[in-house]
Design a protein around this nucleic acid. Structure first.
Lengths: 117, 117
DNA sequence: AGAAAAGTTAACCAAATGCTTGACTATTCG
DNA sequence: CGAATAGTCAAGCATTTGGTTAACTTTTCT
């Protein structure tokens, strides 16, 4: 249950590269072959393959080979895992602001100056 | 609006490390000094400093030094940027599913033209 | 059969990462 | 003042990352 950590490591690591995010964004519109993915990408085919391996290793992308073409598609569940971590943090942050607000209201009864940034 | 890319690179990269996510999670609960952050972290102080530099470089954390203690706090806006990217992808994915549903419904009823791509 | 297309493997390389230790600078406290 | 505290700087080092090129294997097309 706590080796969610390694999993999150891999997903965020996978997303930490413009090329890989572009691949994800492309795959979101629908499945694509390796060379379709490579075409707009100003780099060699093996380089694209390596990005694909990173994306598959973290479960963000899956692929099957039929004939000589490998078709890749996205696996949106893993995206959600990353999203959830961030959301949890932001939620905790807002809770903290609420509690802070309560504390200030309760203890220093001053007119609201609202220094929200 | 496209050099968001480098910025996203840095944020996701910053989040792609368990130690740094722990620092973020700690800071979400409130500001802390460098050695407070380091205490639960099974590594040397300079190592923690380097993580902190990564977090500051992407704008996720900010800090000021008062006397001999540096106090760090979180900057939640940047978190949101990462969240937004992921959410946008997931939203696009669901739109695609909708369109796909429409397409299938339409195609099983009336023999119209296809070729959406 | 032979050539083109699509992918894969391997070897190599430069740069970035994630740590370490040791020395050094301020600041605060007794 | 002198010692402890808090942080910083600088090397150094092993590993990972992101790319390359070259050679090779399968399909598929003519």
């Amino acid at each position: 249950m706590l080796n969610q950590a390694g999993s999150l490591d891999r997903v965020f690591q996978a997303l930490a590269d413009t090329t890989r995010r572009e691949i994800v964004a492309r795959l979101i519109r629908g499945p694509a072959s390796v060379s379709e993915l490579a075409r707009p990408l100003a780099m060699s085919l093996p380089a694209v393959m390596q990005h694909l391996q990173v994306l598959e290793a973290c479960g963000l992308v899956r692929s099957e080979k039929a004939g000589r073409v490998r078709t890749c598609h996205i696996e949106p569940g893993v995206l959600r895992m990353a999203e959830d971590w961030i959301t949890a943090q932001r939620t905790a942050w807002e809770h903290r602001l609420d509690r802070l607000g309560d504390y200030l209201t309760e203890h220093c009864d001053s007119p609201d100056q609202g220094s929200t940034q």
